[in-house]
Design a binder for these strands. Structure first.
Length: 817
DNA sequence: GGGAGATCGGTTTTT
DNA sequence: CCGATCTCCC
């Protein structure tokens, strides 16, 4: 921690603030003897001693250090159930905070299971959703009105862009995106514009950073809007300035529980401190070894410091792991022990050693992908469920190679991550229409759709409306209404007759829709609006490949709305819940980042790309040095501990980065794995095999120097792996009807065609007889016109179009020409 | 206002 | 090398 005391909670922070006394000894409660088994409630059955302690330690501050796979969620939910079942708390006396909506939902559901009946009234939610709930009640006290809107990142950036432009600052040199990042960082630390340090971000646009931040906040106030950071900050401010209100919440929230405490940022920490001052019944659950979000403001320090912040805290360690086998656990434990900044836990299991972690060196990324896929096919042939297999990468760019191979051999897979439902352009457009109806002064929403679909209201018109709005201090919708009625000849405001008619009609439409919103349900209204505004039509007319998918998404949006009582409720939900429940449950391999995998588990996990620069990521090292390295190592730990039975680590000798071949060294994390728990399989002639005669592989520190790795002479050509096109190939025919789906949640209707495999290696211009298209064949594409097939790769074709040039296209959009 | 070439940048992600 | 975004020109 660089900041010794960033948490000036002013006079509301009583005794515990400034307690810099030596840390209270970390006490690990031992399994306290309990009342006889008969009188014991069912929900305690099957808990191990520390788990039980954590459930029963209801009073005072408690930190539950829950290692990976130690039953954290079970403890959390059982504890909640226990509080309710024993009458210690009514549902509304409980505040349970999570980071994601998914976690909140799961918690809610599992508490019901614990106590066997539905529970209503608990305050279970994300930090942000709980803030919204509180803020809606007291909005006036922080200068908002209770129907404030919540901006997402896009809105935020558009607003900042306007401000930067208005200041005549070069957008190129000082991108709005960067400023958004800086402001977020300030907000993560709960620093208002008048509290920001002079250094770092302040320097944005030569010292304009602070000024722009202030302007941004001013604009938000006028817009009656908050960004995500504000939600936390406003509540903190509310509590700090209104002790009476804080007291009400103290009285209400008799028990506070926090999930993933290691991920809290400074603002969230302060927020919790304020709320926990009341009765000190705060129970934080987390794992310092799984803190992987430092880059977005999380402070591992919060969890490391818990017993200093909350005097007399009980610390309970959950160390019995129920997920992974012994070898995997030992490997992960050894790895993480290389970190300095940790409280320290020793995970153990009684489920046997299992199979050692494998570490495999391959020549390059394509081989890595081939090998992984071959292994997956082998597993599949032994009836290992694909649902229980995951490939976890450090960064998105590693996915392409894997995806290509998966498509090529027809293994069904799903990518987790990618653009989410509510972030898609069409959804945001549709939402903007609804927002303008429900929140007439929502300028950002209005600006987004004023000319979508194109209706001839371009920049000039918008600019005029803008100017009028500014001049009169009114919102843009109001200004738009006014401007159409102006009879002036003033060039600043005078619209072309055409624009005037169109704008009048648009404003009339909005008035009409607003009127109808009383007599129609919000779903009906949405349908009507999308239809009558010409928005649906716009996509129907669009010939591009993803237009049908977008229309599909719009339908999905409308049907999703029906779950909500009214439009306002729905809009709130969407601002906070940028998630989507994908319900495709076909057997698929999961492909995602290690970050995305936190909290999940799979029988078999593949971990490609363990190379210096990739993992640990060079950038992380450059930017945050040792701290960054330790976070990367925690990420490695997270990755490994996702595996229940098998973990396979890979590194490649060279890899294409931005189109350039680069040689790479195995990750230092590989060296840190204990020999006794790993099996090394390195290709003949590849590093390690030749150097260390296979014995002390991974112990040789010499490959920390470049020369060893890149300068190697006896690299023979990679052995042609006969199984490369093996099992998948044999199975080919039965897969002909299979459609691989790149599954990115609701409405990702980007479904590729029946598989058209290519024979032989990539780039080789041979085509299997089974392929629908052959190299050299003349084809037609709806958008690009006529062309000639140059290469076939699975269902992707490389086509040289006569007009459009050479492009990669999915064969489903191609017809024989 | 829209399409086409140039230009730039390129971890990780939730709310 | 690929894609997203921007600029320029019609």
């Amino acid at each position: 921690m660089n900041n010794d005391d960033p948490f000036d909670l002013d006079d509301l922070t009583p005794a515990d603030h400034g307690t810099r006394a030596p840390a209270a000894p970390m006490q690990t409660t031992s399994g306290a003897p309990l009342a006889n088994a008969q009188s014991e409630p069912d929900y305690l059955n099957g808990l191990n001693a520390p788990q039980r302690d954590a459930v029963l330690a209801t009073e005072g501050p408690v930190l539950v250090l829950a290692g990976a796979g130690t039953g954290k969620t079970r403890v959390l939910t059982t504890r909640l159930g226990h509080l309710l079942a024993t009458g210690r708390a009514a549902p509304w006396n409980i505040l349970a905070v999570t980071f994601t909506n998914k976690a909140a939902k799961e918690m809610q559901e599992r508490v019901m299971k614990v106590i066997g009946r539905p529970v209503e009234g608990m305050w279970i939610g994300t930090f942000h959703s709980i803030c919204v709930r509180i803020l809606r009640r007291h909005a006036e006290l922080v200068g908002l009105s209770s129907n404030f809107t919540i901006l997402d990142t896009d809105d935020q950036i558009r607003l900042l862009k306007q401000l930067i432009k208005a200041e005549n600052i070069d957008e190129k040199r000082w991108p709005p995106r960067q400023l958004a990042g800086i402001i977020d960082r300030w907000k993560n630390k709960a620093q208002a514009p008048d509290q920001i340090p002079q250094g770092e971000g302040y320097a944005f646009a030569n010292g304009m950073g602070g000024e722009l931040y202030q302007q941004y906040q001013d604009r938000l106030k006028i817009l009656n809007a908050c960004d995500f950071g504000d939600l936390m900050m406003h509540v903190i401010k509310l509590f700090q300035h209104n002790p009476d209100i804080l007291k009400q919440y103290h009285a209400q929230f008799r028990y506070i529980m926090v999930d993933e405490y290691q991920d809290t940022n400074t603002a969230q920490y302060m927020w919790l401190r304020l709320l926990a001052q009341g009765n000190k019944n705060i129970c934080c659950v987390g794992d310092d070894d799984q803190s992987i979000y430092g880059w977005r403001g999380a402070e591992v320090g919060n969890i490391l410091r818990f017993n200093k912040d909350y005097e007399g805290a009980t610390i309970i360690r959950l160390e019995q792991n129920y997920r992974s086998t012994g070898h995997i656990l030992a490997a992960a434990s050894a790895l993480i022990s290389a970190n300095e900044d940790r409280l320290g836990k020793t995970l153990w299991t009684d489920s046997g050693d299992g199979t050692p972690v494998t570490v495999k060196g391959v020549w390059d990324a394509p081989e890595e992908a081939r090998d992984i896929c071959t292994e997956i096919e082998n597993l599949q042939s032994k009836s290992h469920s694909l649902e229980e297999i995951a490939v976890l990468v450090r960064a998105g760019f590693q996915m392409r190679e894997l995806e290509e191979r998966l498509i090529q051999i027809g293994l069904p897979y799903r990518v987790i991550g990618g653009p989410r439902f509510y972030e898609r352009a069409e959804i945001r457009d549709a939402m903007s229409y609804l927002k303008v109806i429900a929140q007439p002064d929502n300028d950002l929403a209005f600006e987004r759709i004023i000319n979508v679909p194109k209706r001839g209201l371009g920049d000039t018109t918008v600019q005029k409306i803008h100017t009028l709005a500014r001049a009169h201090g009114i919102s843009m919708t109001r200004a738009a209404r006014q401007i159409t009625g102006l009879t002036t000849d003033d060039k600043t405001y005078k619209l072309t007759p055409r624009a005037r008619t169109t704008l009048t009609r648009l404003m009339d439409d909005f008035d009409r829709w607003r009127g109808l919103s009383h007599s129609y349900s919000h779903t009906e209204l949405a349908e009507m609006v999308l239809d009558e505004s010409g928005y649906t039509e716009m996509w129907q007319a669009d010939k591009s490949v993803d237009a049908p998918g977008r229309l599909e998404n719009l339908k999905e949006l409308v049907s999703g709305m029906s779950e909500f009582e009214n439009l306002a409720g729905f809009l709130d939900h969407v601002s906070l819940v940028m998630e989507n429940d994908s319900n495709t449950s076909d057997e698929k391999v999961t492909l995602m980042t290690m970050h995305g995998a936190k909290g999940l588990e799979f029988d078999t996990v593949f971990l490609p790309g363990w190379e210096e620069g990739v993992f640990p990521s060079q950038r992380s090292l450059d930017e945050t040095g040792l701290k960054g390295l330790e976070e990367e190592r925690r990420l490695a730990y997270v990755g490994l501990t996702r595996a229940k039975k098998n973990a396979h680590i890979y590194f490649a000798g060279s890899r294409q980065v931005f189109g350039q071949w680069q040689t790479s060294m195995p990750s230092r994390f590989i060296e840190e794995l204990p020999e006794d728990h790993i099996t090394v399989q390195s290709a003949q002639g590849l590093y390690g095999n030749t150097r260390n005669s296979g014995s002390s592989w991974g112990r040789d520190t010499s490959y920390e120097s470049d020369s060893t790795w890149s300068g190697d002479k006896d690299w023979t050509a990679p052995e042609q792996n006969p199984s490369k096109y093996g099992p998948g190939w044999k199975r080919r025919e039965s897969y002909d009807n299979y459609r691989p789906v790149r599954d990115r949640g609701i409405g990702s209707s980007i479904t590729s065609s029946p598989l058209t495999p290519s024979l032989g290696r990539k780039k080789k211009k041979t085509t299997a007889a089974v392929s629908e298209f052959a190299v050299g064949e003349r084809v037609f594409h709806d958008k690009f016109g006529y062309g000639v097939v140059e290469d076939v790769e699975g269902n992707k074709l490389l086509v040289a179009f006569e007009k459009a040039g050479t492009k990669r296209v999915m064969d489903q959009f191609i017809t024989k020409g």
